[in-house]
Design a protein around this nucleic acid. Structure first.
Lengths: 136, 136
DNA sequence: CGAGATTTGTGCGTATGTATT
DNA sequence: AAATACATACGCACAAATCTC
């Protein structure tokens, strides 16, 4: 139940927590649609901005994707490809630039690996589709 | 100049691009404050909602931090510590959970490394303070 | 120290556009 | 063609944190 008392957590974070719980516990399975904006507004007696802000939180966490005309969908966990970087490489993680989001067709809330070789070149890998493996 | 013609890119993305350019080119140095919401509204004749959406884009990219009562500040790039994961480890990157954001005092738009050892344990490292090094 | 101004945070209302079903 | 659902964009009010005088 959402509690709008002052001093407490913001309403949109309370709603995000409710939805997050449903997703991570599997009550809403991957690929399955979540309640629409309107439904959430009516069920919890909230304004549209508040509902959208809660949804934006989940999107930024990479838990959901939005499909226009369909709604908010719990994100599928893609199979990850294994990558062994070259010897001496340095690996950073960060959010992608807008160009990188376009190039790799990344959802909101998906970071990237940036692999820098000793020679100085940098290659970018979408964080939701790769796992880095250490030798050994 | 911002162009609100229909069919073109959304106004808030145009504004985000303008501010992004100022940051990455160094016109606005790290640690320096950006124009306030009000200033941006007046300069570009936009509603507050639109301005805030542009700012949210930059925040999600990890370019700026917001300080209530102070303003929007270009993020400092922290010195990164070097980490060599154990042999056979698998490394993922993702956005942190709300608990992890609290625990590590992470800004918005900062992903984490998740290092899984062959034994099955997982350890989390803030993505803005660590760089992973491959042996070699 | 306080008072007031500034700035971002939260929450709601409304209208219109666009894509999908 | 129509309904549904999200996207963009204008507006308002008040709260909370910070800064300045």
């Amino acid at each position: 139940m959402i509690n709008p008392r002052p001093g407490g957590p913001p309403v949109y974070l309370q709603l995000a927590e409710i939805l997050r719980t449903r997703i991570v516990t599997g009550k809403i399975a991957a690929g399955q649609a979540l309640p629409s904006e309107r439904t959430l507004q009516q069920e919890h007696a909230l304004g549209r901005h508040t509902v959208r802000k809660a949804m934006a939180v989940l999107r930024a966490e990479g838990l959901v994707t939005f499909v226009r005309g369909t709604g908010m969908v719990a994100r599928e966990r893609a199979e990850r490809q294994r990558l062994v970087p070259p010897a001496g490489a340095a690996v950073l993680t960060r959010m992608p630039s807008s160009e990188e989001r376009d190039e790799f067709d990344l959802d909101d809330g998906v970071p990237v690996f940036a692999v820098r070789t000793p020679e100085g070149s940098e290659q970018v890998f979408p964080g939701d589709r790769w796992v880095l493996i250490w030798p050994g």
